[in-house]
Design a protein around this nucleic acid. Sequence first.
DNA 1: CTGTTAGCGCTTTCAG
DNA 2: CTGAAAGCGCTAACAG
Lengths: 302, 302
Amino acid sequence: MSDVAKAAGVSAATVSRALRGEPGVSEATRRHVSEVAKRMKYAIARDASSLAGGRRYAIAVLTSTVSPLLAGAEGALRQAGYDVLLYVLGDESSRSHFFNANPLGRRVDGVLLLKLTLTESEQASIDDLGVPTVTVDDTDLRDSVKVAVDHLMQLGHRDVALVLADGIDEEYDEILTKAGLDVPPEWTVWCSPTVDGGEQVVDVLLDGPRLPTAVISSSGAAAVGIFLRMQRDGRVIPDDMSIVSLDGQEITRVVGLTAVEGAHREQGEHAVADLLTLIRGGEIEPADQPIRLVVRNSTARV
Amino acid sequence: MSDVAKAAGVSAATVSRALRGEPGVSEATRRHVSEVAKRMKYAIARDASSLAGGRRYAIAVLTSTVSPLLAGAEGALRQAGYDVLLYVLGDESSRSHFFNANPLGRRVDGVLLLKLTLTESEQASIDDLGVPTVTVDDTDLRDSVKVAVDHLMQLGHRDVALVLADGIDEEYDEILTKAGLDVPPEWTVWCSPTVDGGEQVVDVLLDGPRLPTAVISSSGAAAVGIFLRMQRDGRVIPDDMSIVSLDGQEITRVVGLTAVEGAHREQGEHAVADLLTLIRGGEIEPADQPIRLVVRNSTARV
DNA sequence: CTGTTAGCGCTTTCAG
DNA sequence: CTGAAAGCGCTAACAG
């Protein structure tokens, strides 16, 4: 920087101010300095800058998986002038590794946690960083179920089956019931969240006294399995049965299933906006996670 | 750090050496210092550390898209003790934005370019950083075709159709011909790289005098479309026709298609290894991009 | 508007 | 093996 200052005939402080767009520099000087800097291919050393200035212009993004949510967050952060330090903490070993090493030491202005469930001590170690933190959880399944039910009822469906991935044990029937739907117990079925799982579900349903006019599947892969098995059975989707997936995986898009999606990119961008507000010392209020119904070709009027 | 030094009864220099595992500290001292540091929740300030030390322990990863390749690279880098600065430079505007701002100023020890095609001036601006750079390109389609053809011929297929995504204009027939395959021109077809596109391809093939015993599809989605349409037509895959996808998208996995995959994660890890070698002043030699045939349930003996 | 002067929190010689 | 001192390249007060 002092080389640039010398070449431009000003002090280092002026170069610093000029290049960062700080007020207190005449337009002429600023232009001149910028030109000299560009000519000399000079770029501010960010470490030194943050050391002296206190701001780091970097955000740590901890995520369980590389996803569109991440893409949205990254874009928003870069636009705001922040660098993204990425940590993919999917499995246990990388998690413990990370929290042991604690590589964030005074390196970031904030932390974004994406679809990550932390233990208390892990959360504490994040809190110890003393910087603002925003968490984005998985979209609540109950909300998704509700959106799907509304959609199906609007299409006149009354006989709806609910396909849940193994391990989901909450009571969703209630939501269907509340909406005024008949829910015979044999129409709540569990399966593995895979294509195979979905195919088996069709067998189960076919064994019953009659087929529902629609199914809601918590798993995208299972929804695809249901779709494929029905089709191979010579049945037509959505004429013979409507399908709604509660998981907006790419596969559901590919075979054209109606799906309830968390608006991934938007969620990421929204989280970033919150984080930046916190960094600037503002307050945020919890907002609903955006949920979106994407109607494709697997749902139709009864 | 000086607080920790005081608390531990040593100098700051010793704390620094102890915490970084530098030689020249007695084991006893090191243990003691580490304990005190942990108790005081002290973590080295990385900016100050890199300012003073010259090493930054950060790598910039520029990528066109958030992908498994990125996940692989991130994992390998973190394991090596490097932080990842992520820049998703998919569209033109974010690209120009990035290269204007040039936010990398002496902030990283190296750069990883993933599936990104840069203009000359962009490449130059990366080179100006003066740090090692490694590029990972898209796997060459020709190599993939070759792998697929080998697989099919081994299964006894001689009547193979080639389904290319619109926009692909290179001559791949040649590869088939060289391998000794018959390639009537009507068996090279183009379609949009979507499920719909694949379904239409089946219509085209059914219109012909006879069906090929196998198809190779450059697009994963189109391959799925072919699969679905055949199935709906009452035909059984792979008995009636084998399908190979040249794109290892997740969807191909989900419906169980045989696919030629660039080994994404592995590619990322390999690139990181190369980059680290360069950073340490070593030499690397160009290696083949790893390609992998994943045999699932869509290919069988004629 | 601009320059001068102190550091920011470390690492690294160089002595001891 | 350990400590003291001298910066790393910037920014922020403070003067002018």
